[in-house]
Structure formats: C-alpha cells, structure tokens
Design a protein around this nucleic acid. Structure first.
Lengths: 200, 200, 200, 200
DNA sequence: TATGAATGAGATTTCATTCAT
DNA sequence: AATGAATGAAATCTCATTCAT
C-alpha cells in the first residue's frame, strides 16, 4: 500500500471509529457531522470524500460490527470440534454472541435492534468486503453436513436471530424482564424447541 | 364535559391523529412540530400546551396504538369461548395481532420495532389511562385459570412478544425471508414448542 | 376596606412580591409574565388588570423598594437628635443606606444601578403614593435649617446619590476594588470633602 | 494577511459595527441576531462563527469602545506636557472623556452605565488585545511619578470613574439635574476635593 | 373581576453541504 | 486530496397578549 493509500485508510478509519464513539454515546440523531470530523481531527469537507452522509457511515458501521461478531463466533465454533449436531452448534453460536454483547454493552446498544434480518442477510451476502470470510458458505455447509434435515433452514435462522437480538437487548441492558443469566436457560430451551419443531 | 373541555379534547386528538399520519408517512426524524400543527390546524404554541416535545407525542401514540391492538385482540378472544387451553389462546392472540398488522401496514410500520417489552409492559401497567381496560389482570387470569402450569409466565409472554414483533415486521413489510402467510405456520409451531418447553 | 378591595390588594401584592423574587433570582430578561403569575397563583389575564407589562411592574418595584429604604433611613435619622450639622446628617443617611444594602444583597442587586437620579427624583416627587411620606419636604427642610449654606443642594444630593449607589454595588457584591468595610472610610471622607467644596 | 484572513476580519468587523448601530438605536433587548446579520450582509450562521451570542458581541463592543475612549484621552494628555500634577492630569482626563461623550451621545448611551469598574478594570488588564496600549502601566506611572502620595490610588481611580460615569449619563442625556456645562465645575471641584482628602 | 386556552410572530440555534483555496 | 469559511434553510421553543367564558 502506498503512503497516500495508507493516509487515506487512516482518515477513513478515524472517521469510522469516532463516529462509532459518538453514535453510542450520544445517539444517531444527536451526532452531527461536525462532531465526527472534529473528533476525528479532519476537515469537514473530508468527510464527504469518504461517506455520503451520516446514515451512510452508520450503516457501514453496523455491517462492520455485525460481521466482526460473526467472525469471532464462527471462529470460536471452529475450535470446538467436539460440537457435532447442528442444534448444539446453533446454541454455541447464540450463547457466544450473547456473551460478547454482555461484555460490550456499548456494542449491544449500537447494533441492538439493528442486528435483524435485513442487516444480517446483507452481511451474509457482502461479508467478503469487510471480513474476507464467506459467512453464507459457512451457514449453508452447517446444515448440509447435518444428519437431521430441517424444513427451511433460512427461516429457522431468521427466527432464531430475531429472537436473540430482541430479547438480549432488553435483558442485558435493563434486566427486563429478568437478567440475562436467568434468561439464558429459557432461551436455550426455546431455541432447541423451535429447532425440534422444524425437524423433518 | 364542558364546552371548553370538549374543545381541548378535540385539539389534543387533532394533534395526535395528525402526528400519527406524519410519523407513519415521513418518519419521526423528518416530521417537524410545524408539520404537525399546520396539518392539525392549530397554532404552534398550542402543541406545547399538550405535549412536551416531538418524542412525547410519539411515545403517547405508541402506547395508545398498542393498547388499541390489545383491546381488539382480547376482545375477539372473549368471543371465542371454545378456545380453552392457554396455548390455544396465545396462538389465537398472536394470529389475531398479526392479521391486524397485516391489514394495517401503516400501523405496523409505526409500532413495528417499538412493540417491544418496555412499551408493552408500560401499556399493561398503565393501560387504564388510555383504554379503561386492565390488561395485566387479563393476562394474569389467563395463566391462573390454566390446568397447565408454566415455569415463568412473564418470561414466556416476553419471549413470544419479542419473537412476533420482530419477525412480523420483516415478513409483512418486505416479504423477508418469506411472506407472512408462509411464515405463520412456522411461527405457530415455534410458539407452541416454546410453550411446551416451559410446561412444568 | 371592603372584602373585594382586600382581595384586589392581596392579588396585587402577590404579583409584586413574586415578581421581585423572580427579578432578583433570574433577572428581568429571563423572567416571563407566565413565571410571575404561576408563582403568584393567579391567572395570566389577571396580571393585565393590575400592570401594563413586565417593565411596568419592574418600575413600580424599584420605586417601592427605594421609597422603603429612604423611609427607614430618614426614620432612623429622626431618632438621633444629637446629629445636628447637615454634613453629619448626610453621612448618617448614606452609612445607614449602605448598611441596609449590605444586609440585603438581593435588594442591592435589584435596585443597584437603578437607584440613580431619575428614579430617586421620581420617588421624591411621588413618594406620597407609596409611603405617605413627603421626602422632598424632608430634604428641603434639612438644608433650609442649616447654618451652612450650600451652593446647590440639589446638585450636591445628586452627586452623592450617584457616587454611593454605583460604588456600593461593586464593593458590596464583588468586593471590588475593596470590601465595603474598607471602602466606607474613603467614601465618608469623599462625601465630606465634596460637601466642603460646595460651602458658601 | 492572507486573502482568507482579510475576509474573516472584514466579516467580524461588519458584525461588530452593525451590532453597535443597532444596540445604540434599538437597545440590546430589541436587537435580534437576525437584525445584526441582515444589516451586516452576512448569513445567520456566520454570526456564530465569530460570537457566542448577542451578549458576547455586546461585551466585546463595550470593551472595544471603552478602550478607544481611553486611548484618545491618554493620547491627548500626552500632548500637554505643561500639565504636571496628578490632580491636574486626572481633571484633564475626566474633562476630556466627558467632552468626548458629550459630542457622541450615541456612544454615551451605549457605554453609559457600563463604563463602570468591572469593565474598566477588564479593559485595563486586557487592553493590549484591542488597542496595543497598556493602560494599566500608564496609570501606575502617573501615580508613581507624582510628588504627592495618595492613600490608595486604585480606590481613588475607582471612586472617580464611578462618579463621572454615572453623573455624566444623567446630565448629558437628560440635563438632569442640570446640563453638563453647568455640572462640570461642580464635578471638577468634587474630584479635586476627593483627591485632596486622600493625600498623605 | 377573574380565568386560562389559544394564538402566532419571532428569536435562537444548528447543521448538512458547497466551493474557493 | 484536503481544507474550513460561509451559507441559509429549517427546527425548536417562548411568550406577550387576547378574549370567550
């Protein structure tokens, strides 16, 4: 990478990092482009060389952060060769993601309600851009190699993703209706039951 | 009610109704108080006699609309005396709510991701303000009268509410991952399975 | 006084008292008529039955408070029959006023820069309205009965009033350039010198 | 100075000059930032690039104008080498300032009651910013080089400043209690008397 | 006399975006 | 590629005043 290329990347990263800090601390609405550039230490006009507007940088951040979580979770799964059934693998992944979000509540606040199907699917499809990993391939293989066949794996993943992302938000951030530690067994049981209901 | 009181109610209602129209068509961010008052045909200052700011009226609308949906669903359930088990009742309620949202996509867009636990619980607790119906009482009776005991009814309702609200949004509005008609059987099965998993 | 008259006076007094509280705590600019009436416990329209606007009530308060200070000071002087010369009487009055303002800094903040010639003269002329005491007469007698004749008593009083009111403000409230206790001897000397300079 | 710097100075000056015109003709309260920018021919947002709010620009103007008056008065004194005693110098300065304010009643209205100790001291301390002249040094030298020693030069200057600024206002603008021409001898005498009273 | 809901002009302030340097 | 001064539309919110009850 040339020096010019390096400098450009440095600016882009500074903008992304500082935007993330501001979005999580002040919220999307109360963060202005002025805030972002002054924190990032670049000129106002520079912002528009890299991003279209506030929502553009916001979307890119969600994709980036979501991909990063998936990267960690699938990476961790890879190291547990003893987990064989799809059901156990899904439980492992959901537990892993929940524990990540539990540790990083700022991150949870940020992707919170956004880690839903739209973004998730987008990350699956375009993951190579951000992470060089093809998550779609990983998930397809997961179900293809299984002894048990599921009626509709995509719907199954969809339901589980939505369930986890929305319950985790309330439970981790506000302990509502109960803290995440107490909620986890209910979630695990629910997920296993949902999967059982789709076995063919 | 005195003439003055009637007039006040008329103004408040005009503000709420027109704010709803604007929030659903343009979104919260792109709706200004100027928009609301000019549509409602009242002066700008009048807005501040009834609401603190844009977010205040927004929250009140969510509560109002949510309470209204619950009112309809529980009312309909009341007319089906042949539905006896809690499981069947919950399925009836969720199906009914989904069909309401399906018919009124504007309403779905509005409460969409907002029909989550925080608001829902608030509606349960404060429902009398808006509807004169005590939903909390209704739900408690539902489980109390059941032959089957559930480990934690509150957690059960929480999980189901979150599941329904987040999946319905994607499916009804964007047919993602599949249209709501095709999704419904999966959801019904999932809910029944989740409930079975909590039977004692 | 009839009951109606009593009630009216009660309202007027409530408005004056609460306006004073607000003017001294928030300043004239940041005090609205809404603030005044809600503190006074009367309706907004009632304000306009008693005062023209914010500035009207403000002016009346200054006159009222100024007259009250003069009333106390001249009253105190009356009890000291041993003070004979005009010079000593003036020094007594200024010292007395300063000590009053020192004790009541809120009052000082309020009349501060306003206890100047314009208002003062107005109080002298119209004092009967507020206090039933004719200050003008008192001051005229003061100089008429003196053995020493002064070139221009009105100018003399003017210069002293302006000197006292503007120096007291800075010294009492901010200890600038020195605290009032240290400043007093300088002021007394200055006033005596100014008077000596006008003896004929 | 670069073209950009020149342009910035031009805008800032335009804002200051036009704010002064408006403050003196309509008063601080009745002047809006909209008024200022439209008169100055700049955009509303530009105002906020140079000043915090209306009160900020007002304060800067007072300091600027006060410094300018002092600059003229001390400059004029410098050209009168025949004036030797401190007393004569002070009388010269006060007379000079009074004659300036007499000629420019707009200026008098503006700084009027504001040319008091707080602002004055601030100008003395920060004068270099606005005028490149160190007034504090000038005043200190004035007393240091004198044959006569005064008890407390700072207090002396304080008393004189307050006396002049408050009496000039009433006399020049309203001829109250008498016109400034007639008042001047009284003031001169009073100042000389005050100074004599502080000689050691 | 007293009330207080309603008004709507207008003040302050922010901020995305442009463009000359 | 980078800058940051300038813009001006637009949003929020206040508040003196009126007037029907």
């Amino acid at each position: 990478m040339s020096k010019v290329e390096q400098n450009k990347l440095k600016k882009r990263t500074a903008l992304l990092d500082n935007a993330f800090e501001l979005f999580t601390s002040k919220g999307l609405n109360n963060t202005s482009i002025s805030d972002i550039v002054s924190r990032a230490g670049v000129a106002k006009g520079t912002f528009y060389l890299y991003f279209k507007d506030k929502y553009d940088i916001h979307n890119r951040l969600i994709a980036r952060k979501t991909a990063n979580i998936l990267l960690q979770a699938t990476g961790a799964l890879h190291e547990h060769e003893d987990i064989i059934s799809v059901e156990d693998k899904i439980i492992f992944l959901t537990d892993y993601v929940i524990s990540l979000l539990e540790k990083d509540k700022t991150l949870l606040t940020f992707i919170s309600k956004n880690l839903s199907w739209g973004i998730f699917k987008n990350v699956l499809i375009n993951s190579k851009e951000e992470t060089d990993v093809d998550f779609r391939h990983i998930f397809l293989e997961l179900f293809r190699n299984s002894d048990i066949t599921y009626r509709n794996p995509e719907v199954l993943v969809f339901i589980i993703i939505e369930l986890i992302s929305s319950t985790a938000y309330s439970s981790i951030l506000y302990n509502e209706p109960i803290p995440i530690d107490e909620l986890k067994p209910y979630l695990d049981t629910s997920i296993r039951q949902i999967m059982k209901g789709q076995e063919i």
